[in-house]
Nucleic acid binder design. Structure first.
Lengths: 335, 335
DNA sequence: ATGAAAGCGCTAACAT
DNA sequence: ATGTTAGCGCTTTCAT
């Protein structure tokens, strides 16, 4: 693969001149520029960002650290990040922490090694170590979604407390008096904020004695299990607030398994919307491809290919498709 | 920030020895190893992957190029890729092409510049240029989901034709005779494969005369519009096959807008499942955060911070939350 | 408007 | 088991 030197020789100039043409920096005569550009084309030269980064201390790379890209909330966020980054010729590395402090640390370390220019961080835990560590490695950080204590930082978020307050008032307005909240980890700001909003709404309605707060984790399983606990409470709540989308799903499933009707028996409200298209009825009959498994196998294959441990022959891996019949397909009665 | 040299001095060894300790390569006495490790810790040394990559020609970086990370099918795939990569200390850059050949080319270029070790590619178009270009830059490629013509390659995919064939047979088994297929671009292999499976199933049932094939794009809008066209056909089809999840959603919405009942009037089957949690009833009342916008604003803020064009003060951007009332919250009738 | 020299931080290749 | 030397490809710095 050609380097600046090759291009320089071809164009009869010094390497630095090639650099100047490519980066549009400094003064270059039109004639020189044209000769250099011609040489670049002829040789199919592609500048090496790695080498550039080593010298210039800018890698033109960002990282997005979320808890789980699979949560549609973070998926949308990721797409937003990538769109802007792409427009600016930045590249985005993404990482899933699964709310684990250990994974967050591991990734922070990887990102520092990689000299990314900046990190967009949804903090998995309440503490400021990651931010401090990244900063100590000259990496800018913008926090997303959750507040962090113990350190000042750029942050983009919403007003969870207020929204939670509003949701609870909505339930109170519907006549509910025993309202439970099922939320995430105590250490996460959004978890706490949503509880605070909940408590304030109850207090304002003189219902503070009815507080029913359940901390857990921001996933479906936790929502499911805590709902079963909640419903053993006596008297039972008539409404439940799930503090994120996955918890709300867990709630709905648990209530269904308990034969409790929503909303006739218990009202449910949630936080974070699910993609609009999930609200379509009827349920689709589909051919389901094993997307996650495909991703895993492909990455595995690629890594093996890279390490050279594969024979020359190209491989084709074909995975089975599962057919799932649901209500959208029914016997024909229309001729 | 400390370098190998600093660590080497501190430990009283040569830089290469530090390198050997860090990479677990070559023979190192226990005593030396311990001294080096101590020095690493004391200085808070973090190896520079960029410099390493420049020398060793391995960046430990993969790229995942999909059409749209927002499609849950690709989201799951991405998570699978990242899990494996993370376990191997590889990092993943991801890119959305939106089925655009131009974007694919642009990203291929960016990735070559960045010297990624390998690319996982869902080809946006049928042609082999991207693969050839990447290979000419010493980058390994594994193709995902779609076949490509004109070049041999590693590939991970499913048997679309067969699954499509099965779905159509299922409809035929339900008594449907006029079945339409709404699919994606003619240039995309999965699009063609699914049509082929459809055609074969019809042929086997002696229904070839009833073929109703509509090519468009793999998105909701295309599914929506083509459905309106399909339903102007006379006699109307009694079943429609949507060749991916977004198309199927478009179909369902169009039929709803046309006051056509699914499945009483028209059966619908799709390709690619939607996340399981999408099939819960009732519809949740939620507080919806503007995730995409948050991502965009945060990336923007970070890039500005990196470029130094921001004042010293940290910024806090708080976005509004939208409350969406649906059926899951109802008046209390349970005391 | 162009170039020469140096060096970013690391590791491959070759000693010892 | 450890060290020396050189150089990856680029851009900064300082000339001219």
């Amino acid at each position: 693969m050609p380097t600046v030197l090759d291009v320089a020789k071809r164009a009869g100039v010094a390497p630095i001149t090639v650099s100047r043409v490519i980066n549009n920096s400094g003064y270059i005569s039109l004639a020189t520029r044209e000769r250099v550009e011609a040489a670049v084309k002829e040789l199919g030269y592609v500048p090496n960002t790695i080498a550039r980064g080593l010298r210039s201390k800018r890698t033109h790379t960002l990282a997005l650290v979320v808890t789980d890209i699979t949560n549609p909330y973070f998926t949308s966020m990721a797409r937003g990040v990538e769109d802007v980054a792409g427009e600016c010729n930045y590249t985005v590395i993404y990482c899933n922490t699964d709310e684990s402090e250990a994974k967050e640390e591991k990734y922070a370390n990887m990102l520092a090694q990689r000299q990314v220019d900046g990190v967009l961080l949804v903090p998995s835990c309440g503490n400021e170590n990651t931010i401090k560590f990244l900063r100590s490695n000259d990496i800018d950080v913008v926090v997303l979604d959750r507040h962090i204590s113990g350190v000042e930082t750029d942050i983009v978020c919403t007003d969870s407390k207020n929204a939670a307050n509003y949701l609870i008032k909505l339930l109170i307005g519907l006549g509910h008096k025993r309202i439970a909240i099922i939320t995430g980890q105590k250490e996460v700001s959004t978890s706490v904020d949503r509880v605070t909003g909940y408590q304030q709404a109850l207090a304002e309605a003189g219902l503070s004695d009815n507080e029913l707060v359940f901390y857990g984790a921001f996933n479906e399983q936790s929502g499911y299990e805590l709902t079963k606990q909640v419903m053993m409470h006596s008297p039972k709540p008539t409404a439940i607030f799930g503090a994120n989308n996955f918890i709300a799903i867990g709630i709905i499933k648990a209530l269904r398994d308990l034969n409790i009707d929503v909303p006739a028996d218990v009202s449910v409200v949630g936080f974070d919307d699910l993609p609009e298209y999930m609200f379509i009825k009827p349920f689709l009959t589909v051919a389901k491809q094993p997307a996650y498994e495909m991703g895993r196998l492909a990455a595995d294959l690629l890594l093996k290919r890279i390490s050279g441990e594969l024979s020359e022959e190209y491989q084709e891996i074909v995975l089975p498709i599962e057919i799932i019949e649901r209500e959208s397909s029914a016997p024909n009665k229309n001729g």
